[in-house]
Amino acid sequence: MTLLTRETSGVFAIAPTPFDDDGAVDFDSLGRLVDFYESVGVAGLTLLGQLGEAPKLSHDEASRIVGYVLDRTVLPIVVGVSAPGYAAMRALTTEVMSAGAAGVMVAPPNILRTDNQIADYYQGVAAAVGETVPLVVQDYPLSFSVVMTPSIIARIARAVPGFVMLKHEDWPGLEKISALRHLEAAGDMPRLSILCGNGGLFLDFETERGADGAMTGYCVPELLVDVVAHAAAGRREESHDIFDAHLPLLRYEQQPGIGLAVRKYVMKRRGLLTSDAQRTPRSVLSGQARSEIDYLLHRLAERDGRISLID
Results as ranks from 00 to 15, higher is better:
Gly130Phe: 00
Ile293Leu: 02
Leu273Trp: 02
Ile111Phe: 11
Arg282Ser: 13
Arg113His: 10
Gln278Tyr: 09
Leu33Phe: 14
Gly187His: 05
Trp171Lys: 12
Ala54Lys: 13
Ser58Asp: 07
Leu203Ala: 11
Leu273Tyr: 04
Gly23Phe: 05
Leu309Thr: 05
Met189Cys: 07
Leu297Val: 01
Val225Arg: 06
Leu249Pro: 01
Val262Pro: 02
Thr149Val: 12
Asp276Val: 04
Pro172Met: 04
Gln117Cys: 05
Asp244Gly: 07
Val69Arg: 01
Asp28Thr: 13
Pro134Glu: 00
Ser283Gln: 09
Ile242Arg: 14
Gly187Cys: 04
Val125Thr: 07
Arg6Cys: 08
Gly234Cys: 05
Met267Tyr: 07
Gln50Asn: 13
Tyr252Asn: 10
Ile156Pro: 02
Ile118Asn: 06
Ala229His: 13
Gln123Gly: 07
Met97Ala: 03
Leu4Gly: 01
Thr2Asp: 08
Ala107Asn: 12
Thr207His: 11
Tyr122Gln: 01
Arg90Val: 06
Tyr122His: 03
Val40Ile: 15
Asp170Asn: 13
Asp26Thr: 07
Gly187Thr: 09
Gly173Leu: 02
Ile153Arg: 05
Ala107Thr: 14
Gly80Glu: 07
Gly85Glu: 15
Gln50Ile: 15
Ser39Ile: 05
Ala233Tyr: 09
Val137Phe: 01
Arg282Thr: 12
Phe36Leu: 05
Ser275Leu: 05
Ala126Asn: 03
Gly217Trp: 09
Thr216Leu: 15
Gly217Thr: 12
Leu47Ile: 08
Asp204Gly: 12
